[in-house]
Nucleic acid binder design. Structure first.
Lengths: 162, 162
DNA sequence: TCAATAAGGTGGAAAAGTCAACAATCAAGT
DNA sequence: ACTTGATTGTTGACTTTTCCACCTTATTGA
C-alpha cells in the first residue's frame, strides 16, 4: 500500500483509473499531514486556505472555489464556526450569503500548515520540469472539460435485458 | 457544477486540489456511463475488468491491482457474488484467499461496457498528443511515488501546542 | 512441533458525501 | 408595489467510503 509498485499505476491501465489512484494517495498524504497540525479535515482546510489567500471571502464564491457541494459546505462551515476558526457576518449585498472572517486561530493554523503544504507541493513536482508542468495543467483542463460529457460515442444505442 | 469555468480548476491553485477536482469530474462521468449499462458501481466494475482482462484472478492481487481498500473489496466482492457476476473458489495455494471466476453475466457486461469506456478514454485524450500523454503518465508515476511520504521537509521541526 | 509474527478477510462504527425538500432572498419584468 | 422564477443556504435522511478491531490462516524460526 505504501509502495506504488504494488498498485495499478504501473500496470498501464486506463487514465481515469490511474488518476483515481493518484488522487487517493494524495488525499491520504494530505490527511496525515493536516491532522498532524490540528483538527481540521481536508474540506475545512481548503475553505480556510481560500480565504487566507485572499481569493474569496463570501460564501458562494468560496464554495465554488473549493469545489465543495453546497450541502457539505454548509456543514463544514458551521463546524468551522463551532471550533472557532471563522466568524460569519451578514453580507449586505446579498442577504442570503455571509461574509466569512478568519479568526486568529485560523490564521495561526494557516501559517503553520501553509509552508508544510507548500513544501509538499514542491516535493511532489520536484522532478518535473516547467514544460512538463505546463502540459499537466493543460491536460487537467482538457480532461475536466471532456469529463462533462457523457453522451459521446455510444458504439451501439443499446437495448439491454436487465 | 457541470461547467469547469465555475470550478477551481481555472484558479491556478495547487496541483493536488486540481487533481481532486478532475477526479471528481471523471468519477461522476464514469458513474453515469456505467449505471446506464447495468447495476455495477465503479469499484465493482474495476474488479470485473481486471479479471476480464486476465491481469489477475485471485483476491489479493486483484485487490491491489484495483487499489481498493481491503474492507471495501470484501464487501464489493460479496455483492458481485450475490448478483451473480462472480463465483468464488477456494485457492489451494493460500487458503486465506479465493480464486475469482467471472460468470457469463460478467463477461457479457464487460463486452458491452468495455468499448464504451474505451470510447470515453479516446474522448478524454482526444486533444492530447503522444508526447503530452507520455508526460502525464510519467507525472502520475512520479507524484504517486512522492505521495507515499509524509515526513519530508518540515520547515521547522515543529513543537506545537495542541 | 510450537510459539510468534505477519497477512488476509470480515463486520461494525464513524466520517464523508449525496440528495431532496424547504424557506429566504434576489432579479426581472409587469 | 407585485408576481414569477431562479439562486442560496440549511436541514435531515440516506448512501457510500473509510477506518479499525477482531478472527482466521500462513509463515517463520527456534
Amino acid at each position: 500500500m505504501t509502495n506504488s509498485r504494488d498498485s495499478a499505476i504501473d500496470l498501464g491501465l486506463l487514465l481515469p483509473f490511474q488518476i483515481s489512484q493518484l488522487n487517493s494517495a494524495l488525499n491520504a498524504q494530505a490527511k496525515v499531514i493536516i491532522s498532524r497540525y490540528g483538527d481540521l479535515n481536508l474540506a475545512q482546510w481548503r475553505i480556510v486556505r481560500v480565504i487566507a489567500l485572499g481569493i474569496e471571502n463570501t460564501t458562494t464564491p468560496v464554495r465554488k472555489a473549493t469545489g465543495i457541494d453546497k450541502s457539505q459546505f454548509s456543514k463544514m462551515l458551521s463546524v468551522l464556526e463551532k471550533k472557532g476558526y471563522v466568524v460569519l457576518h451578514p453580507f449586505e449585498s446579498d442577504k442570503r450569503q455571509h461574509v466569512i472572517e478568519l479568526t486568529q486561530k485560523a490564521r495561526d493554523a494557516h501559517e503553520r500548515l501553509g509552508p508544510v503544504l507548500d513544501a509538499r507541493q514542491q516535493h511532489l513536482i520536484a522532478t518535473l520540469s516547467e514544460e512538463e508542468l505546463a502540459v499537466i495543467y493543460k491536460a487537467i483542463r482538457v480532461m475536466a472539460d471532456a469529463a462533462t460529457k457523457t453522451d459521446f460515442a455510444d458504439p451501439k444505442p443499446i437495448r439491454k435485458e436487465e
